[in-house]
Amino acid sequence: MSVRVEIVPRPLDAAAPDTRADAGAVVQFEGVVRPIEDGRPLLALEYEAYRPMADNMLRELARQVLEEHGLTAITVEHSTGTVHVGERSFRLVVASPHRAQALSAMASFIDRMKQDVPIWKRPVFAVVEEGST
């Protein structure tokens, strides 16, 4: 069983790490900064993490989800700093013997991360000049 957690001070690379780990199912989720937030054009999101608490909580959550869902591997990557529209800020890859375990683990991890782990994001909106639309 494999647990890998990394917080990096930049957008994530496009290439995901290899997380097959003797699995019958590998599910990958990527969080990408969308161009519109609350109806307003967005330039970027700025992420802050309280470290090392955020690292430790992500690692503990990954271990819990791995055990609860019978995963064979889980990889978590999260950005801090500025992540522009279209760039990746979060990646979760889980591997399990069967698909149902991997799919349920995905939702469980993300819901709990958003509730508990001390990572914050601020929107950076594009300035729309009056009369330009």
């Binding site: 969080g31 992420y47 993490a49 309280y50 608490m53 955020a54 999260h78 800020s89 979060f90 993300i110 991360m113 958003k114 509730q115 508990d116 782990v117 001390p118 990572i119 914050w120 994001k121």
Partner: peptide
């Protein structure tokens, strides 16, 4: 001490 809550990573 740090205030946590209202987090929203991802």
């Amino acid at each position: 001490c740090v205030i946590i809550g209202l987090v929203g990573g991802g």
